[in-house]
């Protein structure tokens, strides 16, 4: 169990590296999107460990909001060029 948690946290830190270091804004957005999906998995895992059912509600809400956020960021990126 504890090994799986450490590996998931390692994944999250890799995403954070990409958010911090990514040379262009879309790279950072990819990191944010991936981090959102990882957090959904993490919530499900927490639900199993603690045995509390409402963590799954958190996971579903997080999936919905993460998708909307990604679409909004993508639309924002589409609207402008970086040389302006």
């Amino acid at each position: 169990m504890i090994v799986l948690i450490i590996l998931l946290v390692l994944c999250c830190f890799m995403c954070l590296y990409r958010i911090g270091a990514g040379p262009t804004p879309p790279d950072r957005t990819v990191g944010i999107d991936t981090l959102g999906t990882l957090v959904v998995g993490f919530c499900a895992f927490t639900a199993i460990i603690t045995g509390k059912e409402w963590y799954m509600n958190v996971a579903i809400s997080w999936a919905l909001l993460s998708f909307i956020g990604t679409i909004a960021l993508a639309k924002f990126l589409e609207g402008r060029g970086f040389d302006e």
Partner: peptide, 19 residues
């Protein structure tokens, strides 16, 4: 269902913004 859709949107946005 949603993850590939987000990926299309991001790829399209990145290409249109000139990456």
């Amino acid at each position: 269902l949603t993850s590939p859709t987000g990926a299309h949107a991001l790829a399209r946005g990145a290409h249109k913004s000139g990456v």
